[in-house]
Lab assay of single mutants.
Amino acid sequence: GVRVRALYDYDGQEQDELSFKAGDELTKLGEEDEQGWCRGRLDSGQLGLYPANYVEAI
């Protein structure tokens, strides 16, 4: 996976979405899909989806 850092807070709206705060680091686990979602893993171990444009590569 690729380490990325959140640029903005994001509150997951669905069960399969991650929630994070600006500045949090997570691991991107795949390329974004056509809707702009990426699969990732928080350092807590939680897996889920997040909007790709909310993070930057570290």
Results as ranks from 00 to 15, higher is better:
Thr27Leu: 12
Leu26Cys: 00
Leu18Phe: 15
Ala22His: 08
Leu29Gln: 06
Glu31Ser: 10
Leu29Pro: 00
Tyr54Val: 10
Val4Cys: 03
Ser19Met: 04
Gly30His: 05
Leu26Gly: 01
Arg3Gln: 07
Gly45Met: 04
Tyr10Ala: 03
Asn53Cys: 14
Ala57Cys: 10
Gly30Thr: 13
Glu25Ala: 11
Glu34His: 14
Tyr54Thr: 10
Leu47Cys: 14
Val4His: 04
Ser19Thr: 14
Ala57Tyr: 06
Leu29His: 05
Thr27Lys: 03
Thr27Glu: 06
Asp9Ile: 02
Ala22Tyr: 07
Gly45Ile: 00
Phe20Ile: 05
Pro51Glu: 03
Arg39Trp: 08
Asp24Pro: 00
Leu7Val: 08
Gln13Phe: 09
Gln13Asn: 11
Lys28Val: 11
Glu14Lys: 14
Glu14Gly: 15
Asp9Glu: 05
Tyr10Cys: 05
Val55Phe: 07
Tyr54Lys: 15
Tyr8Ile: 08
Leu47Ser: 14
Ser19Glu: 05
Leu42Arg: 05
Arg41Leu: 09
Tyr10Met: 05
Glu31Trp: 06
Leu42Cys: 10
Ala6Met: 01
Leu49Pro: 03
Gly40Cys: 01
Tyr10Phe: 13
Val55Lys: 01
Thr27Ser: 11
Gly36Asn: 05
Arg41Cys: 11
Arg41Gly: 06
Tyr8Pro: 01
Ile58Asn: 04
Leu7Lys: 12
Val2Cys: 14
Glu34Cys: 12
Ser44Cys: 15
Trp37Met: 10
Asp11Arg: 06
Tyr54Cys: 12
Thr27Tyr: 15
Arg41Ile: 14
Lys21Cys: 14
Leu26Val: 07
Val4Arg: 02
Leu18Lys: 03
Gly23His: 04
Glu17Trp: 10
Asp24Ser: 05
Glu17Lys: 12
Gln35Lys: 10
Cys38Ile: 06
Lys28Ala: 12
Leu7Ile: 13
Gly36Ser: 04
Tyr50Phe: 13
Tyr8Ala: 11
Gly36Lys: 06
Arg3Pro: 03
Ser19Asn: 06
Glu34Tyr: 15
Ser19Val: 06
Glu31Ile: 10
Gln35Pro: 09
Tyr8Thr: 13
Glu34Gln: 14
Glu32Gln: 14
Leu42Lys: 06
Lys28Leu: 08
Gln15Trp: 07
Cys38His: 04
Gly12Cys: 07
Asp43Phe: 06
Ala57Ser: 14
Asp9Gly: 07
Ser19Gly: 05
Glu34Ser: 13
Asp9Met: 02
Glu32Phe: 04
Glu14Met: 07
Thr27Ile: 14
Asp43Leu: 07
Asp9Lys: 06
Trp37Val: 09
Cys38Met: 05
Val4Asp: 02
Asp16Tyr: 06
Gln13Met: 08
Asp43Gly: 10
Tyr54Trp: 08
Leu7Ser: 05
Ile58Cys: 07
Glu14Cys: 06
Gly23Leu: 04
Gln46Glu: 09
Asp9Ser: 12
Glu17Asn: 06
Gly48Phe: 00
Asp16Glu: 13
Ser44Met: 03
Pro51Gly: 02
Leu49Cys: 14
Tyr50His: 03
Gly30Asp: 13
Lys21Val: 11
Arg41Asn: 02
Leu29Lys: 04
Val2Gln: 09
Glu56Trp: 03
Glu31Gln: 14
Arg39Leu: 11
Gly1Glu: 13
Gly23Trp: 03
Gly45Glu: 03
Ala22Ser: 14
Leu42Asp: 06
Gly36Cys: 02
Gly23Phe: 03
Glu14Gln: 08
Ala22Thr: 12
Glu31Asn: 10
Leu7Glu: 03
Val2Tyr: 05
Asp33Tyr: 07
Gly30Asn: 07
Leu18His: 01
Tyr10Asn: 04
Glu17Pro: 02
Tyr54Asn: 04
Tyr54Ile: 11
Arg3Ala: 03
Gly45Asn: 09
Leu7Ala: 01
Leu49Thr: 15
Gly30Ile: 04
Ser19Gln: 04
Ala22Gln: 15
Gln13Pro: 05
Gly30Glu: 15
Arg39Val: 08
Asp9Arg: 07
Asp24Thr: 12
Leu47Trp: 11
Gly48Ile: 02
Asp43Met: 10
Lys28Ser: 13
Gln35Arg: 13
Lys28His: 10
Gln46Leu: 09
Ala6Val: 02
Asp33Lys: 06
Tyr10Ile: 01
Val4Ser: 03
Gly48Ala: 00
Phe20His: 02
Phe20Tyr: 03
Asp16Val: 09
Asp33Asn: 14
Leu7Gln: 04
Asn53Leu: 15
Pro51Asn: 05
Ser19His: 07
Cys38Lys: 02
Leu29Asn: 03
Gly48Asp: 00
Lys21Asp: 07
Ser44His: 05
Ala6Asn: 00
Gly23Asn: 05
Glu17Ala: 11
Gln13Tyr: 10
Ile58Asp: 03
Leu47Asn: 14
Gly48His: 00
Arg41Thr: 06
Val2Pro: 04
Glu56Pro: 02
Tyr54Leu: 12
Gln35Ile: 15
Gln35Asp: 11
Leu7Arg: 08
Val55Pro: 01
Glu31Val: 12
Tyr54Ser: 13
